[in-house]
Design a protein around this nucleic acid. Structure first.
Lengths: 338, 338
DNA sequence: GATTGGCACTCACCGGGAACGAGTGCCAGT
DNA sequence: ACTGGCACTCGTTCCCGGTGAGTGCCAATC
């Protein structure tokens, strides 16, 4: 891939195909983009591009369509990230303003992202693993039953019922609460788990304490809760038009299996870097027709969790990447403030 | 509608059409169901049924298809609720066992319901309005900033940040916590709101208290949180086959608009009563091709919230109704215990 | 009066063929 | 290296006749 014009032709093909959804021919190309050469010349370039695997034709006597490899080259070398306009930025800000809690923030983000990109948006809730304990509350519901509430730095709240082997009175409960909070508050989850373990080892007497700690440790190491995601904009799937059995069904299934979904989104990347997975590059061959545009987010650009969109390989990559990055940035900023 | 056999014919048509997805003709009818009469007789009955609007033919020389009115008669008079088998009951119980919190319970319910019915399942979270306050916790995050956590009888937890106009110390916070809890715990939301209001009126001094109460009252009367629903089984939409623009897109859109969705599900009905809305009977004409099977659930059969499925008018109503009822019953029982 | 067998009729659903046209590859000329 | 010309491919569309499922009606039967 050296020839300059060939790249221009590839770019033009991608842009046209994304816009029209139809295989693009040499004539239409020179007309719509000011390539300054004749269709025949473009045809030669197209033959070369096809030879190298960047484009393909669905059948003889049809125009060309970008392959996964073609899209890949396009996003790697032919795309300049277009920054969001001031109006768009304002729209984002006003959309996110007024969120009351973490749930709300995440919900708004998916919605925003799906509207900006007109694709299915996915936002993972901030992982437990790297957040710190802000407070642990124990609420007596009955003499031998209490509710443990775990409040994390990201604003996440986990709650668990604890059945006690023996009743506990208010004073003992207050002591326990102090003890636990002193050990865990401010610690990263992993450290909090070990600190709480040590606590039990030091005080073999308290059965109630042991039960509470067990539940807390359980909640902290529950990786299921790392799998929480919010999904939005599924109605955009209706635009897939053809190929329902082959594209939409597996995607809908993936969207319900959060583990699968998170694997699909891939590792969260920090610092404004947006990951693009095109078609068969992803881990599931049933989803060979879908691409993922994702990035990480979190306070102080820490990539606590992933966020992004899932859509057909035929999509507006530059615009989508810009939107994903912008939303991740706003979301991170909000977590910074909280 | 008096003739006994005509009803049998209608029932047979509905059952066959639901099973085969194809317009059913007179000959196939007498063959598959032991009607004991000739096709010609059935044709006469069918002509009468069509006259009365219970069935229709897509075009001349095609079989008959039930109309909304036909389905309506079918579910009203021709259907006997088939109880779940023991195996199914066991499957349900094991599926729901081991849920750790309210979120988890609701998630499992949607999943279960969508698998049982092979339709899109919807479960509304228990409404705030009729639940009682179990505990209110105030956690100091900074001298002039605290987190208010509202724990309700259904297991729901709402949390809000409160910015204080002036710093507050630990003792004052403890006092405030006691005061608030004494006023609100055990009360229904509406009563708790008035009780808290009275509290502020009696103690005009405390600005911090006023701020906290304001936030709490706000959270309690926030009707947005009544609109929380969980949706599952969307991949079953892929089975719609034809009619994507007309049926699937509006449905996907409705599923994202929780307000719309709840209106669609209708009023929650208690006591094992299952509501069926067929096609155009619902409030949205874009969803004229979809039916809703729903019921209420809640502790002590109180209908705190709605749960059900959304699917094509052409569905297995008896089986679906049984599944919806069974899941609602289990869910209610779990809330009873909590 | 209800039921039935017979029969003509309708009409969606193929399958095949012809016309069309977008798009290509190649080649000779500039 | 580019371009105009040209033959060729092949999917798409339209038309058309055959087929068959299903109907409505009628006269005959129980």
């Amino acid at each position: 891939m050296q020839n300059e014009r060939r790249l221009a032709v590839l770019r033009a093909i991608v842009e046209d195909y994304v816009a029209t959804e139809e295989p693009v021919g040499s004539k239409a190309l020179v007309e719509r983009h000011g390539l300054g050469v004749s269709p025949a010349t473009v045809r030669n370039d197209m033959a070369a591009l096809e030879e190298e695997g960047y484009i393909a034709q669905p059948h003889t006597s049809a125009g060309r369509v970008p392959t996964d490899k073609g899209y890949r080259l396009f996003v790697d070398r032919l795309t300049t990230v277009k920054p969001m306009s001031a109006a768009e930025k304002r729209a984002i800000a006003s959309f996110m303003a007024g969120a009351v809690d973490l749930d709300d923030v995440v919900q708004r983000s998916v919605r925003l992202l799906s509207q900006l990109t007109r694709q299915v948006a996915v936002v993972q809730y901030p992982t437990l693993s790297r957040s710190t304990v802000r407070h642990i509350e124990l609420v007596a519901l009955a003499p031998n039953r209490l509710l443990a509430v775990l409040i994390l730095s990201t604003g996440r709240v986990e709650q668990r019922l604890v059945e006690l082997p023996e009743p506990i009175d208010e004073d003992a409960l207050a002591d326990l609460r102090n003890l636990i909070n002193r050990a865990a508050v401010g610690e990263v989850i992993a450290d909090a788990v070990t600190a709480l373990g040590r606590l039990v080892a030091q005080q073999p007497g308290s059965q109630a304490g042991a039960a509470v700690v067990e539940t807390l440790v359980d909640a902290m190491s529950d990786h299921r809760s790392d799998e929480r995601v919010a999904v939005g904009g599924t109605s955009n799937l209706a635009r897939y038009g053809d190929s329902f059995e082959t594209a939409v069904r597996p995607l809908l299934e993936a969207l319900e299996e959060h583990v699968v979904l998170l694997k699909l989104m891939g590792e969260a990347t920090a610092g404004g870097l947006v990951t693009v997975r095109i078609g068969a590059e992803g881990p599931y061959q049933e989803l060979a027709q879908t691409s993922v545009v994702a990035t990480g987010y979190g306070p102080r650009d820490e990539a606590l969790a992933t966020l992004g969109i899932v859509g057909p390989t035929r999509m507006d990559y530059p615009g989508t990447m810009a939107a994903v990055r912008a939303v991740a940035r706003y979301l991170s900023r909000i977590l910074d403030e909280a």
